[in-house]
């Protein structure tokens, strides 16, 4: 990210170390992950020891240290989704994308993650692709949904 943009984020939080989580959240919002160089820049300019940044970035679920796909695929693993068959849905997503948690497909389109609960339990099992919710998923629906995305993306190209 442009240093000027990072400066803006740091200023927004008054260069306060206690706001480091919010700063990283804003950075991730922009970049989709936390790039190494940006973290080094924040460390120097907040300032805050780099170790503290990495400790936080590896502790909280919200942060990714590697780039995610253009369409992050996130499977809800909440209890309600679990009893309605989320593990089977998750296995199928893994099979369909050929990647595991934290992985990105070779074409950079999809990445895979799980969330603990999206609070939309009525739709469980839920898979979120990009920002779209797909509810009442079944293993078969996973296949057709991902196919749809692939087709849509191919068309856009």
């Amino acid at each position: 990210m442009d240093h000027k943009c990072i400066d803006k984020i740091l200023e927004k939080y008054g260069h306060q170390e206690s706001s480091i989580i919010a700063i990283l959240q804003d950075l991730q919002e922009e970049e989709n992950y936390l790039p190494e160089n940006d973290l080094a820049y924040i460390s120097e300019n907040l300032p805050i020891p780099l170790t503290r940044i990495y400790r936080i970035a590896t502790f909280y679920n919200a942060f990714n240290l590697t780039p995610r796909g253009k369409y992050p695929v996130s499977v809800c693993m909440g209890t309600a989704c679990h009893v309605r068959g989320a593990p089977m849905v998750f296995d199928r997503v893994r099979l369909e994308l050929g990647i595991d948690i934290g992985g990105v497909t070779e074409d950079g389109l999809f990445s895979l993650e799980t969330v603990n609960c999206l609070g939309a339990c009525a739709l469980g099992p839920i898979v979120v692709i990009g920002k779209e919710y797909h509810g009442n998923m079944t293993p078969a629906k996973v296949e057709s949904t991902i196919k749809k995305y692939r087709k849509r993306i191919a068309k856009e190209k």
Binding site: E36, L39, P49, L50, T51, I53, R55, T58, F59
Partner: peptide, 22 residues
Amino acid sequence: EAISFLGRGSDRKVGPPLEINP
């Protein structure tokens, strides 16, 4: 502060940022 805890739960470890050469 060359090293710190990294990760959480059963994945917790101690190490430098990026896990090498602090």
